[in-house]
Nucleic acid binder design. Structure first.
Lengths: 188, 188
DNA sequence: CGGCTTGCCTAAATAGTTTAGGCAAATGTA
DNA sequence: TACATTTGCCTAAACTATTTAGGCAAGCCG
C-alpha cells in the first residue's frame, strides 16, 4: 500500500485550499481524503477530529494574515500604514475567501491566546503611533479599525454591496480617507 | 397518528430558537424533528431542504432586525438616530446570536433582493438625513456605518475583545461619538 | 537481516440528509 | 351522514460524513 506521506501540516494546507475553492463550511475530512486518494480513517492519525482540522486552518489563516500585515507595515507610518494594513485584510479575503472565513472561527480562549490573533491587535496598535492617541483611546481606536476592516471586508465578500453604485473601490478609498481624518481629529 | 400542526412558519421560528440556543450551524432538520417529536421526513412537506430552512431563518432574522431598526428610528434624528440604530444591531446580536449569524448567510441575488436586506440600507441612509452628506458620499457613509456596526458586533460576539481592557461599553460609546463626529466633518 | 514503529487499511457504529411510497386524519361534497 | 379527496405524518431505504477499533505491511533502526 503506497504511502502518500500525509502530515498534519499537509492536511492543514490542503484543507485551506479546499476552503478557498469550496467554502470553509465545505471542508470535510471526507473531501480531504478524496483529494489525497486515501481512506478517511487514515486522516485520524494526523488530526484529532474534523473540528481539530478546522481550528488548524483557522490558525494557519491568522498566522498568514499576521505575516502579511507585518510585511506591509514595515517602514510605513501614518495614513500609508493604515492603507497598507487595510489592504492586506481586503486582498487576503478576496484571494483566500475560505481562509478568511476560517480566521473568523471562534476559538476557545487558550487557543485564541496562543494564536496570531494577538499579533493582529499589536499591528493595528502600531499604526496608531503615527497618530496622537494614548491610553484608552488607543484601544478604542484599535477596536474601531478592526471593526471597520473586518466589517467592510466581510460585507463586501458576502455580496452586501453588490447591487448598488458606486463601485466598492471608491468607497474603500473614501473610508480610508475618513478613518485617517478621524484618527487625526479624534474627538474627546 | 396525532397531527402536530407543522407549518413552514412554525418550523422557521423553532429553527431560529434552535439557532439562538445551540448556534446557527447546529440547526439541523434532525434537531428540529426531535423538538417537535416528529420524524425527520415529515419536515420535508414544509421545507424543501436543510438549506431552505436556513435561508428562511436568515430571512426571518433580517426582517425582525429591520422592524426593530424602523421602530428605533421613528422620531429620532442625528446622533440620537445613529445611536439607536447601532444599538438595535448590537442588542439583537446579543439576545439572538443564532439569528444574527443567520442574517449573515450569503443569499443568492434574487433572494437577497427580495429580502429585508434592502430596508437595512434604506434605514441606514435615513440616518444621514441628519447630516450634510449627498450623492456618492452618502453611499460611502452608508457602507461605512454598515461595516462598523457589523464588524464591531461580530467581533464582540466572537469574543475578539474579551481579553483586553477597557470594557466594551466604553469603546462602543466612544465609537459612536467618533462616527457622529466623522459624519459631521466628512472629509472631501 | 529481524524487529519495531508507524501509515494507511478494513470494518462497523452513529448521525444527518433526502426521496419514494403508504396510511389515516382532516376537509369538502352530496 | 357517508363518501371522496387532500394532506400530514409515517416507514423504509440510499447516501454522505464522523469517529473508533483493530490489522497488515512498509519503512527505519539495530
Amino acid at each position: 500500500m503506497a504511502r502518500v506521506g500525509l502530515t498534519t501540516e499537509r492536511l492543514t494546507r490542503a484543507g485551506a485550499e479546499l476552503a478557498d475553492e469550496l467554502g470553509f463550511d465545505q471542508v470535510t475530512l471526507s473531501a480531504l481524503a478524496r483529494r489525497f486518494e486515501v481512506k478517511v480513517a487514515s486522516l485520524y492519525s494526523h488530526v484529532r477530529s474534523s473540528e481539530d482540522l478546522r481550528t488548524r486552518i483557522a490558525l494557519l489563516a491568522l498566522a498568514e494574515l499576521a505575516d502579511r500585515a507585518a510585511d506591509a507595515l514595515a517602514g510605513r507610518a501614518g495614513k500609508e500604514a493604515l492603507t497598507a494594513l487595510a489592504n492586506v485584510y481586503r486582498d487576503y479575503a478576496k484571494t483566500h475567501p475560505g481562509r478568511y472565513a476560517a480566521a473568523q472561527l471562534r476559538l476557545d480562549p487558550e487557543t485564541a491566546a496562543a494564536s496570531a490573533g494577538v499579533r493582529h491587535a499589536q499591528l493595528t496598535r502600531a499604526i496608531l503611533r503615527g497618530y496622537d492617541l494614548t491610553g484608552a483611546d488607543q484601544t478604542h481606536a484599535v477596536r474601531l479599525l478592526g471593526s471597520v476592516f473586518h466589517g467592510y471586508v466581510s460585507l463586501e465578500l458576502g455580496g452586501g454591496f453588490d447591487h448598488s453604485a458606486p463601485d466598492t473601490e471608491q468607497t474603500w478609498a473614501r473610508i480610508l480617507d475618513a478613518l485617517d481624518s478621524l484618527l487625526r481629529n479624534w474627538p474627546d
